[in-house]
Amino acid sequence: MNTAQFLVKSDLNFVDKASFTWQTPSNIALVKYWGKSNPQIPKNASISFTLKNCHTVTTIDFIKKEKSEEVTFNLFFEGKPKDEFKPKIAEFFERIQEYCPYIFEYEMTINSKNSFPHSSGIASSASGLSAIARCLMSLENEINADLSEEFINKKASFLARLGSGSASRSIEGPLVVWGNHPEIEGSSDLFGVQFPYKVHSVFENYQDAILLVDKGEKQVSSSVGHNLMINHPFAENRFLQANENLGKMSTILQEGNIKEFINLVESEALTLHAMMLTSNPYFILMKPNTLEVINSIWQYRQEHNSNICFTLDAGANVHVLYPLDEKESVNQFIDKELAKYCQKNQYICDATGLGAKQL
């Protein structure tokens, strides 16, 4: 794996201060990754829809300081100091210092906010860490101005991955593959790449309504869940299955077979949670209302010959996926039948998006 390509190779022209703001999206995996080795290398490849409305907006103010051996930063989340987030960010900076030596030259003030609840099964670490990575790359481009856009995106994904694996899939869109896979040209364990083949029109502007079944923090973090795959009795078969499913998904996306898409996406979601149920220690992130939603979706699909389906991330919330031509009817169904299973009837209407953008 060629990590040397991401080292800073030229002299840097430091500025006294700089400020950058990026909006980066969450994403929802269609083929899941669950299990990794250090440093943040996935045990299987994954593919995700980049979202449009579920995003993090992060501003980093950089002020030049005397160079020291420590990375110094202040962190504010939605206007308030957030000390409980600092260890994860500090660990991230430690992992990337070899590739971003300029972080020792600046005091950083990080201000971040989400358009959705964090730690509840919407990939908040994905959007949060990718936003920080994108701000860092804006600084790197400022002090080393001959970087190409392609390189900036690739390195931003590479850096984001070192904070949160799924964050590697939040730099670009609308479909991103992370993990080396023989059928996906250019794919890598080190960074995410846009799905390189023409996608059938039925999957363009695909809709994702996120039902907020439980807005509380997860009882078991994704990091802990990933680690439980190390001695999992079904781990090796799962990694093989996921890579096979990604090959199948590639064909489905190109050919537009929506019935096969539904089957594979739902199977992947349930397999992810089956891995949690069969870990030791075992755990359950679904809630009773998660199952109520799933059963209601299955019933609606059968009765209306619909192409609605669901997927789940590592949490209780349900992502309701459906093609654009069913938007009106499915939204009515969600409002009348599914919203009652959400906390305070809350859900987020989202769709596929194009990745990070500077504000």
Score class of each variant (00 low, 15 high):
300 Y>K: 11
113 K>G: 06
246 L>V: 01
6 F>D: 12
317 N>R: 09
298 W>C: 08
24 T>V: 15
313 D>V: 00
27 N>W: 01
311 T>S: 14
351 A>W: 04
338 L>G: 11
102 Y>R: 10
83 D>N: 13
169 R>M: 08
49 F>E: 05
178 W>H: 07
1 M>C: 08
279 S>H: 07
55 H>V: 15
30 L>Y: 06
355 G>F: 10
2 N>D: 15
248 K>S: 05
342 C>S: 10
147 L>T: 06
343 Q>K: 14
149 E>N: 15
169 R>I: 02
303 E>I: 02
93 F>N: 08
140 E>I: 08
269 A>K: 01
142 E>S: 12
274 A>L: 03
181 H>N: 12
275 M>C: 03
220 V>A: 07
61 D>G: 04
26 S>G: 13
31 V>L: 00
89 I>F: 06
198 K>V: 07
261 F>H: 14
254 Q>L: 06
13 N>I: 03
254 Q>K: 13
112 S>H: 10
74 N>M: 10
168 S>V: 07
281 P>Q: 12
49 F>I: 15
359 L>W: 06
174 P>N: 15
168 S>I: 06
245 N>T: 06
191 F>N: 03
71 V>A: 02
53 N>F: 02
137 M>N: 01
242 A>E: 04
55 H>T: 14
177 V>F: 05
176 V>R: 00
216 G>W: 06
127 S>F: 01
213 V>D: 09
19 S>E: 14
184 I>C: 02
221 S>V: 09
138 S>R: 03
66 E>V: 10
325 D>S: 06
289 N>D: 15
295 N>M: 12
107 E>D: 04
178 W>L: 09
64 K>A: 15
75 L>H: 08
7 L>T: 10
121 G>M: 01
325 D>Q: 09
66 E>R: 07
314 A>Q: 04
271 T>N: 01
273 H>N: 05
330 V>N: 03
72 T>F: 05
52 K>T: 01
215 K>Q: 14
3 T>Y: 09
104 F>M: 08
88 K>R: 14
166 S>K: 00
297 I>K: 09
93 F>K: 14
353 G>V: 08
127 S>V: 06
110 I>P: 14
250 S>I: 08
306 S>W: 08
291 L>G: 03
163 G>Y: 11
149 E>I: 11
272 L>G: 00
141 N>L: 14
180 N>C: 07
279 S>M: 07
296 S>P: 02
186 G>T: 07
185 E>N: 14
260 E>W: 09
345 N>M: 02
40 Q>Y: 00
340 K>F: 02
200 H>W: 03
275 M>T: 03
210 I>F: 11
348 I>H: 09
308 I>M: 07
100 C>A: 14
89 I>C: 01
193 V>P: 04
175 L>E: 01
340 K>G: 05
134 R>W: 12
354 L>T: 12
149 E>C: 09
160 A>M: 07
255 E>K: 13
215 K>R: 12
142 E>V: 05
105 E>S: 08
213 V>G: 11
23 Q>T: 13
74 N>P: 04
263 N>S: 13
